[in-house]
Design a binder for these strands. Structure first.
Lengths: 258, 258
DNA sequence: AGCTGTGAATGACTTCACAGCA
DNA sequence: TGCTGTGAAGTCATTCACAGCT
């Protein structure tokens, strides 16, 4: 009854493994963003404490994160902004532009395709596909919406490694399958569904409604819990900095089951 | 030199505090989504293992999460789908619709305003404001873009508690200030900047480019690290389900600077 | 027999605190 | 003196494993 995952489980248990903790990876882009800002303002060096404040995290964490990939600062001085940007860019793989393709040209897909923020940070949208004949041929920024069948060609032509899923939930798995089949290795999924992919394919899920629900949960606790004792519990959502929020899950889906 | 936050720091250290761990809160909406799906298919009960599979997490975690707010299942049987939906809706504060307002009617703001997924899950966009005269008066779905000065009125009229920031980074802090001033208590920030708000205001940040950068980081490690020894480290992005990742902190923005 | 609820064990991430270089 | 780099401690989250209902 439960569709079993067509793919083996990750088993990421404990190999020689990941040098960089996941949590740190999520912060690197934030540091990068803050540093670009500092650089633009002509700042030459920055201390871990200052950077921490900008990124909204603890100074010790900034130092630990940066020390992960041998980016050394200068004791007594701090980090050299320009150098650190270079290092981060290298670590984040932003030395060249990443071609991306968007599946789904609805409201969200269109907005993403037209969104300047991607190009600005090293991601170029090289194609947008859809199945709806009404949308095919439409112009979005400098692109023309193509038929989903052209996906393979687009991916091959531009060596696309990242795909963005912006289709309704019912079509998300199919979109993921097509992307994976055409060779895409990482997916950013905006559809509110867990998608099943081989475990060497990276997935990040961003569910906008989930974000609002999390806010609503905390909101509902402000005055609520009147009965509940501990009252002044109004936690704000914390979290972090510009970071990502996302969250998600990844890939795993499990498998089998009755 | 670093502009200090105009608001006291949270100091959320260790009060009587939060009954529900943050990480769990981020998963609840995902369970909720899966349950709605099950219900739609006519499913009456579900075991923690089945639900875990759908949500992409471990079964023990599903049980632990659900036990947090006294939602009991039936041993030997599982959880009653309909009942659990009701409980989750209550916990998540989704018993009635939450009015939201969007600041910024650019590509993203417009897409969000027109996005059906919010209403579907209990969030009604009651207003969209902007400062650009060109955009004011534009229709988006059933709304008309209003002037940012109308924000107070909109928030008051609809008792808006949740605001969405969809403006360029430079305008984000101002948007946040206006929202907070008008009475909004929770913010979903799409601008790639850390915004500073009083600590009783909740903030969640979604930075789309950060999501891509995280994917790119992992992507860059596939074949890379050729020199790096431990080779077969291809971790997929993990994390969790629809959950949150995010992170962060709030606060600090800087200003000044040389 | 099946599956929940939960203490205990494990593991991941964060913060502390300080030695040591500039 | 100032600030980094990092072991050790602390905190929080996940998974295990099993007692105990149905």
């Amino acid at each position: 009854m439960w569709r079993e995952s067509r793919y083996r489980q990750a088993m990421v248990s404990d190999g020689p493994r990941r040098a960089v903790p996941d949590a740190a990876v999520a912060r690197l882009p934030v540091y990068h963003r803050c540093l670009l800002d500092l650089d633009a303002r002509g700042r030459e060096t920055v201390s871990s404490e200052q950077l921490a404040e900008l990124a909204g995290v603890n100074a010790a964490m900034v130092r630990k994160d940066l020390s992960l990939f041998g980016t050394y600062g200068t004791r007594g001085v701090g980090y050299h902004v320009a150098d650190l940007i270079v290092d981060l860019r290298r670590e984040l793989g932003l030395t060249s532009s990443w071609p991306c393709v968007i599946v789904g040209a609805g409201n969200l897909g269109s907005a993403l395709a037209a969104f300047g923020g991607f190009a600005e940070r090293g991601f170029e949208v090289v194609g947008v596909v859809d199945i709806d004949p009404q949308r095919i041929g439409q112009r979005i920024a400098s692109l023309v919406v193509a038929h989903q069948n052209d996906l393979d060609r687009i991916v091959a032509d531009h060596v696309v490694l990242i795909g963005v899923i912006a289709v309704p939930p019912g079509a998300a798995q199919d979109a993921a399958d097509r992307l994976v089949a055409s060779g895409v290795r990482s997916l950013l999924n905006f559809a509110p569904t867990v998608i099943d992919v081989p475990d060497d394919v990276g997935v990040r899920n961003v569910d906008l409604a989930v974000e609002l629900q999390i806010l609503a949960f905390h909101e509902g606790r402000r005055d609520a819990t009147p009965a509940d004792a501990v009252s002044p519990t109004d936690d704000e959502v914390e979290s972090l900095a510009g970071a990502a929020v996302g969250v998600a899950t990844d890939a795993l889906e499990e498998s089998a089951t009755a």
